[in-house]
C-alpha cells in the first residue's frame, strides 16, 4: 500500500530524508513560482513603453541674451538654459571644491562656460527652484533658490546650502550648431 510507505511509522531515516527533500523542493519551486507571478504585477507599475520612448528637445540659443535664462520642457520635466555672465562664470569656477556638498568643478558641468544646461528639479523633493526670472530670488550663491524647503544652488547649479543632497542634474545634450542644442 502506498499509504504505508509514506506514513511508515517505524520510519527508515532514508524515507524521512527523501520526504524532507520532496517537501523542501516543492516549497522552493512554489516560492519561486509565486515570486515570478508577483513580478508582472509589480512591473506593470513601471513606466510603459510609450512613456519610455525617448524624446528629445531642441533649443534655439540665439534668443537668450547674456544674463538671461529660459525654461524648456524635456520629457515632461523643466530644463533650465542659462546664458551666464562673466561674473557668474568666475564665481562658479572659483568656488573652492572643499565648500561643496557634491564636489564637481564647474568645467565638468558645462560644454561651453557661458551655457549652463540643467534639469530644473530640486534634488531635495522635486520642486522647481526659482531664479530663472530676473525678479526671482536666487539664493545666497546667485544661482537658484528652492522655496519649498530652502535649498540654495550656485551659478553652476551646485547645492551649497539647505536640505538638497545633490547638485542640479546636467542632462545629456549636444551642440548642433553654435546657437542650437539638442537635449536627450
Amino acid at each position: 500500500m502506498a499509504h504505508s510507505t509514506t506514513a511508515a511509522p517505524s520510519g527508515s531515516s532514508q524515507g524521512e530524508s527523501r520526504r524532507d527533500f520532496l517537501l523542501i523542493a516543492t516549497s522552493a519551486v512554489g516560492a519561486v513560482g509565486t515570486a515570478l507571478a508577483v513580478w508582472p504585477f509589480v512591473h506593470s507599475m513601471n513606466p510603459a513603453a510609450d512613456t519610455l520612448a525617448l524624446s528629445t528637445t531642441e533649443v534655439d540659443l540665439s534668443k537668450v541674451a547674456e544674463g538671461m535664462a529660459i525654461t524648456v520642457t524635456w520629457q515632461g520635466k523643466p530644463v533650465f538654459v542659462r546664458h551666464r555672465t562673466a561674473d557668474e562664470i568666475k564665481m562658479a569656477e572659483e568656488a573652492p571644491l572643499s565648500d561643496l556638498r557634491e564636489p564637481t568643478p564647474d568645467k565638468d558641468r558645462v560644454q561651453k562656460p557661458e551655457w549652463l544646461i540643467l534639469v530644473g528639479i530640486c534634488t531635495h523633493l522635486g520642486c522647481i527652484p526659482m531664479g530663472q526670472k530676473a525678479s526671482d530670488p536666487r539664493g545666497d550663491f546667485g544661482g537658484w533658490f528652492c522655496p519649498c524647503h530652502g535649498s540654495h544652488y550656485d551659478t553652476s547649479g551646485r547645492i551649497r546650502k539647505g536640505p538638497a543632497p545633490l547638485n542640479l542634474v546636467v542632462p545629456k545634450y549636444t551642440f548642433l550648431t553654435d546657437s542650437q542644442i539638442r537635449i536627450g
Binding site: M45, N46, P47, A48, T51, Q75, G76
Partner: peptide, 11 residues
C-alpha cells in the same frame, strides 16, 4: 516605479 514615468503624470 511609484510614478510609472519620470514625473508625476497621468500614470
Amino acid at each position: 516605479w511609484l510614478w510609472g514615468g519620470f514625473a508625476v503624470d497621468n500614470p
